[in-house]
Simulated assay, not measured.
Amino acid sequence: MSVFATAVLALQLTGAPVQEFTPVRVADSDIRGSVRALNQGEWETALHFTREALEGGARTSVRAAAHANACIALYQLGQAADAAAECQTAVALAPNNPVLASNLSAAQTRMAGAPSAGAGN
């Protein structure tokens, strides 16, 4: 068993809370729309806004936020592997951002079988 799988199992057995996702905010109208949709549980709408942000050829901070917020929406739609890939892309764009790293960790933990707490909880 890998160290990661062992850590996840330990979290499950101890009943420790699973890391939560944090929507990423930047000064961009599409990102604001994605955050609003995530907070309201409107996953498809959040994905729409993240796609709009990415199609706009936005700056790196906006692209990283779009991928991070898409991660949350995809996870909530039951697409854990796609969610983790979006989080990995976000971290690759902004490797020193602790919120992005935390979201990636949450996605990976949940992929390994930990219970879902939902976005924004």
Rank of each mutant, 00 (worst) to 15 (best):
A83G: 00
A81G: 03
L93Y: 07
A68V: 09
A73I: 06
V91A: 04
A53E: 03
N103K: 11
E86C: 03
Q108S: 15
H48S: 11
E44T: 13
E44H: 12
A58K: 00
Q88L: 04
A106K: 15
L74C: 02
S116M: 12
P98L: 13
G56M: 01
A94R: 09
A107P: 11
Q108W: 13
N97V: 12
A106N: 13
T60P: 02
A90N: 00
S61M: 06
A80L: 04
A58S: 10
T45N: 11
N96R: 13
A94I: 03
E42M: 14
D82Q: 03
L104M: 13
N103A: 11
A92R: 09
E44Y: 10
D82H: 01
A81M: 06
T45E: 15
D82Y: 01
A106Y: 13
A101M: 10
L54E: 10
E55S: 09
E42S: 13
E55P: 00
A112H: 14
E86T: 00
A64T: 07
G56Y: 02
A83V: 02
N69P: 07
A92I: 00
L93A: 02
R59I: 07
V62M: 04
P98R: 12
N97Y: 05
L104A: 14
P95L: 04
G56F: 00
A58D: 04
D82T: 00
V99T: 15
Q88V: 00
S102H: 13
T45G: 11
N69M: 07
T60W: 02
Y75S: 07
A70Q: 09
L100F: 09
N97P: 06
A80T: 02
